[in-house]
């Protein structure tokens, strides 16, 4: 185990969320098992207290867990100097590669579903009768599972991380002519794919921003005269298509250009080395902007209830605004960098 402030905080977060998540899973399961739509008056206060405790615990555990995603990369960056041969986070990921890959996949997933649950809880809390309590409790069970898996993965990784092996530099992996990030656009657009990829990157992002703006502005909405559901699902489709486009563009075009290293395609060097100091902000804005569209779908599917309609609509507009802000800021930041660099 490498002991530094980053691993200690990570371990603290993981142990705390593991304990809270374990208790939460048990309490949620128990409450769901005894869940009654009509509670006798004498048991009402006890029932409410238990429910309140579970939701409060869930809010604390999930918020702490969401913080673990960016912190994980801070921790990996702190290991760079400890691992022989590592020049960036990529080198660190070569030690315990399966665990790191697993953690890198599960962290955004848990961030997304936990964010979605917190929004659903916000809707439920805004209504005195708590009409979504059962749905939220049901949803909390798989989320507890993800939370526990993520926490245990973190604990396992931090404890077993020993910088005993020598690793290779990212250039030998990312800068080879047969790298996957180049093969996919090459297959689609031919060998001179850089320009086409740039156009597709801007096109999908701008369409997404226009759609988000349209659903937010009543004037544009009436002009477009599209049903709300069609608008939302078209946003989701474009957002999903946009994810691989942005990732490949960052590997092939934007990352190397912004780093001023036209032949270096390492995304870890881009985000962690400080070559582009605001790179984590750029990537964070994209992640939140895209996740917010998914959160809108979760709200739309789970919180569409007669009682919660008004609150859900208000929150949907707020999340829509958040997504629009993040994606607009993301594309503006990338453009400013490309122009000024």
């Amino acid at each position: 185990m490498i002991v530094n402030i980053f691993t200690l905080i990570m371990l603290f977060i993981a142990v705390l969320s593991c304990v809270l998540g374990g208790y939460l899973f048990y309490a949620t399961f128990k409450t769901l098992f005894h869940f009654k739509k009509i509670v006798p008056l004498e048991a009402k206060s006890k029932f409410e207290e238990r429910g309140y405790l579970i939701f409060l615990l869930a809010c604390v555990a999930l918020s702490v867990r969401m913080f673990a995603w960016p912190w994980f990369y801070f921790m990996l960056q702190s290991f760079v100097s400890e691992v022989p041969g590592a020049m960036c986070i990529f080198g660190v990921t070569r030690v315990l590669p399966d665990t790191v890959t697993f953690l890198q996949i599960i962290k955004p997933i848990s961030f997304f579903i936990m964010g979605g649950w917190l929004l659903c809880y916000y809707v439920d809390k805004s209504i005195p009768t708590s009409p979504l309590a059962r749905k939220n409790l049901l949803l909390l069970l798989p989320i507890c599972g993800v939370l526990l898996t993520d926490s245990i993965g973190d604990i396992y990784y931090v404890i077993h991380m020993k910088p005993l092996m020598s690793v290779s530099c990212c250039a030998t992996f990312f800068d080879t002519p047969l790298r996957p990030s180049a093969m996919i656009p090459q297959a689609l657009f031919g060998s001179d794919f850089q320009q086409a990829l740039f156009i597709v990157f801007y096109a999908t992002n701008i369409i997404l921003i226009i759609l988000l703006f349209t659903s937010l502005s009543r004037k544009w909405q009436s002009l477009a005269s599209l049903p709300k559901n069609v608008m939302l699902y078209s946003q989701v489709v474009i957002a999903v298509v946009n994810i691989p486009i942005v990732i490949i563009s960052f590997f092939e075009n934007i990352g190397p250009t912004l780093m001023q290293l036209p032949l270096h395609h390492c995304i870890y060097c881009f985000m962690g080395k400080g070559i582009v100091p605001d790179a984590p902000v750029i990537l964070g804005l994209f992640a939140i902007g895209t996740f917010a569209i998914g959160w809108m779908v979760i709200l739309h599917l789970i919180c569409r209830n007669g009682e919660t309609q008004v609150v859900t609509e208000k929150l949907l507009r707020k999340v829509n605004g958040l997504s629009l802000f993040c994606l607009l800021a993301f594309i503006m930041m990338v453009t400013i960098h490309l122009i000024l660099i």
Partner: peptide
């Protein structure tokens, strides 16, 4: 919203200058 956008623009210009 617009204040946020302006802040983000300032951050990115500062990032470029630093770089």
């Amino acid at each position: 919203f617009w204040i946020g956008i302006i802040i983000v623009l300032i951050v990115s210009v500062m990032g470029v200058c630093y770089q």
